[in-house]
Amino acid sequence: MGTTWSVRLAGAHGRTASLGAAIAVLLDRLVMDLSHWEPASALCRFNRSPSGTLHSLPGALREVLEAALAIAEETSGAFDPTLGALVDLWGFGPQGPVPVPPDPEALAQAASCCGWQKLRFDRTRGDAWQPGGLSLDLSGIAKGYAVDRVSALLIERGVPDHLVEIGGELRGSGLKPDGSPWWGAMESPDATVPEMVAALHGLAVATSGEYRRCFVNAGRHFGHTLDPHRAEPIDTGLLAVSVLHSSCMLADAYATALLALGLERGSRLATRANLSARFLSKRCPQSVEVLSPSLRAMLD
């Protein structure tokens, strides 16, 4: 998936090597279902398939796509899992970065193939219809799903005390050997705003921001989160959004959606959906931290 993973364990009792091997097998399997970066994955095979073809999706891809489409509907497309063609064109996919923004004609062509409502997906049978040129990219949700799956594997193997991290998304379960909780940071790209940390007792934290995967051209900053309506990187005035949730998959996807929505619309969604969210808004002379009602309640 174009990133790294790490796991911290307590009470593994000499089973670290065997558990590490089991985790690697699981992640390899998830990559072969979900990765936009692995050409042989089920996702990439779907993206390359001819127009008008029906595909039976493997379990992980089916589960993640169902969740992604539900959030796309809830957010009116602010989170859209069908933007793969645009992601690649802007240089944020496996083909690598681009030095300048794409040509408007190329953008229009790619945008014409995008749109979550164009994807016909049968939730009962797990079948997806390729309308032609539609390219899935689950980068905004797949890492969180993988974190949840690794955590579930460790619990099944009798290791309930652990911290799982994939690409910066975290899920904690149980306690450290000294009885203290696993702590997860809500990142602050602006040094004027300190990091916020949360005790991850069966909780996950995911952060989406425009400060890592980005490029600058002609004095303008272009981040990796795309506005599906404008076919270009968002410009919502937010530096980052972090979400705490019992599901890392949902924390991952909602963090992306709230970032794309911006502070005003994102705050309304966080309140309506009872999401524990932290927004960092770009202001002068320093950034401003805004917490959703659910997250403020957790601090009390």
Rank of each mutant, 00 (worst) to 15 (best):
E63P: 05
T16N: 03
A60Y: 11
A22C: 05
S51I: 00
P58K: 07
A17V: 14
E38Q: 12
L43C: 00
H36L: 10
N47D: 12
R62W: 14
N47K: 00
G20V: 13
S6Q: 10
L9Q: 03
G11H: 09
C44V: 09
R15Y: 08
G52E: 14
V64T: 05
I23P: 06
C44N: 06
H55L: 06
G14S: 10
L26S: 14
L61I: 08
R8D: 15
E63I: 08
I23L: 11
T16Q: 06
S35N: 07
V64P: 06
S41E: 05
A21N: 10
A42W: 00
G14H: 12
L30T: 12
A12L: 07
R29N: 11
L61P: 13
V64W: 07
R48M: 05
W37S: 07
L30V: 14
N47M: 05
R62T: 14
H55Y: 12
H13P: 01
T53K: 10
G11K: 03
D28E: 15
E66V: 10
G59M: 06
L19I: 11
A12H: 14
D33N: 04
L54I: 02
S51G: 13
R15K: 07
L30P: 05
E38A: 00
L34A: 00
A40S: 15
S18T: 15
L57C: 10
L57D: 09
T4D: 15
S51T: 07
H13A: 06
D28W: 10
A24P: 05
L61R: 01
G20F: 11
D33Q: 10
L54D: 15
F46W: 00
T3P: 08
L43S: 11
S41T: 15
A22K: 04
A21C: 05
P39C: 14
T16E: 06
V31E: 05
C44A: 03
L65I: 08
I23T: 08
H36V: 08
S35M: 02
H13E: 14
P39G: 05
A12K: 04
G14C: 11
A10H: 08
W5I: 01
A21Y: 01
T3V: 13
F46E: 07
E38W: 09
A42Q: 00
G52N: 12
M32V: 07
S56Y: 02
S35D: 13
A42T: 05
C44L: 03
G14A: 05
T53S: 15
S49I: 11
T4L: 12
A17D: 07
P58F: 10
M32S: 02
A22W: 09
R8C: 07
A21M: 03
S41V: 14
D28H: 10
R48Q: 14
R15F: 13
A42D: 02
A17P: 07
L9P: 01
R62N: 07
S6A: 13
S56W: 14
E63S: 12
L27N: 04
I23R: 00
G14E: 03
L43W: 09
H36S: 13
R48C: 11
M32A: 15
F46Q: 02
G52V: 01
A40C: 09
L27D: 04
H36A: 11
E38M: 00
L65D: 06
P50S: 03
P58D: 11
A21D: 12
A12F: 13
V31A: 04
